[in-house]
Design a protein around this nucleic acid. Structure first.
Lengths: 246, 246
DNA sequence: GGGGAGAGATGCCGC
DNA sequence: GCGGCATTTCTCCCC
């Protein structure tokens, strides 16, 4: 049975060998950086990755209670009284201190993973759907550009309607809120002033829109188009549903 | 040496006993819900909490590559060919499938933790600092309310300046951007129309402001006040700095 | 549950 | 590094 202090060389060795370190312990945690935080004593799971990411989880909840972004320097301050992990990110001016009382279990091992996650159903997928199938907005809509990073902002879809009126479409993959309306308003105003035209159509495309946002949208003369981001894996999804007997 | 399939009863037993489960495995992951995702084969760490949170980490990066929020139902589909964790959250219509090829290590244990993290240096701390020390904004400023949820919106600080002009202060703990200016603009316009006054001062208080945001702020006749959120633990921070020999 | 807004937001891309 | 913006954002709070 290892004593808490005995884990120091294990951690040092694992860090040197670029292993992932996983342990459970009773500890307190201090953080100082963009904000300040303190977490009193309790059992937590600590994950240290080969890129020196540090993630601390309590036994409930989706999010880590404390963490350090990749690239932290990790020092072990180990003596008869204390077992402390001092983590610093000098460029971000962030400091994390884990005071470890007892380690419940410890593991370190090398991980091999070259995969990148593939995600679909994003806002960009929505913009592409509109660009290649402009009739989902309305008949006669002719897109000119998509995902354009101009000095006027990042405009999702930009084109002319059947009456050759300049039209800006802002996509949201989730329910559109007040800030989405204001984003659209910002783009419309910038395009109006830069092109020197008095009217530009603004369309907010999203699965739905909040009541207050819809009111503001109408006040500003913009339009809402109900549209859901495409999920190309839906075939898989249906298969899964069969498999999992939903 | 356990075979991959042998872990099924271990997981079932740990779930029943409300233990936290930690394992490392080679797996593929499918997600379907708000979006769709697929992650090809590789080594990952899987954390399953007693509240049925599921978190999957790759060997690099701060954020989990896949996850399910607390409350997921977990089923084990285990036979000679496959070892699969099927996770569903019916109310959120989210589904996560982990196809496990090999388990590298496994641990489950009970965790005790009743602590809540204490954080300081938030936007609310900024608003309180202004409310109780209004001279940090300017001499003569008299705050009337703080953190007020009115039908006009959530206004950080609201009061009168030395000339008895209605003044709205929007706080940001980080660099103020375009959306912060538009948020202030929204509040000012709402208060103007609801109070029937022609002029309301708008002040954006933040550590700094982006160049474009400052331009928009000036265009709309608002003001910027450089202000940093207070960090009450700074004494601790200084001690830490000494301890850690920065 | 919806709506609004903060967060130690994080992460990505473009300049 | 800054800026602008999406995110399976997450979380909290109020109505």
């Amino acid at each position: 049975m290892l004593k808490t202090n005995d884990y120091a060389p294990l951690i040092k060795n694992a860090l040197k060998k670029n292993e992932s370190i996983l342990f459970s312990c009773n500890c307190t945690v201090h953080y100082s950086g963009r904000a300040e935080s303190f977490l009193g004593p309790g059992d937590r799971i600590v994950l240290i990755k080969p890129d020196n990411t540090i993630i601390i989880h309590q036994p409930t909840g989706n999010n880590p209670v404390n963490y350090m972004k990749p690239g932290a320097a990790i020092e072990i301050d180990n003596n008869d009284k204390n077992f402390v992990l001092n983590c610093k990110n000098l460029s971000l001016k962030e400091y994390l201190t884990i005071n470890i009382v007892r380690i419940h279990f410890f593991n370190s091992h090398r991980m091999e993973d070259g995969q990148t996650i593939q995600i679909q159903g994003t806002e960009k997928d929505m913009a592409e759907m509109i660009y290649y199938n402009p009739s989902v907005i309305e008949e006669g809509f002719k897109p000119l550009s998509m995902e354009e990073h101009t000095k006027y902002g990042f405009i999702d879809v930009f084109g002319y309607d059947k009456d050759k009126t300049l039209t800006i479409i802002e996509c949201k993959r989730y329910a559109a809120d007040l800030s989405a309306v204001q984003q659209l308003r910002r783009y419309v105003e910038k395009i109006k002033s830069s092109k020197g035209v008095t009217f530009v159509r603004g369309i907010l495309a999203a699965p739905r829109i909040s009541s207050n946002a819809e009111k503001m949208l109408n006040d500003w003369g913009f339009e809402f188009k109900a549209l859901t981001p495409p999920k190309y894996l839906e075939k898989f999804n249906r298969d899964q549903k069969t498999l999992m007997q939903f």
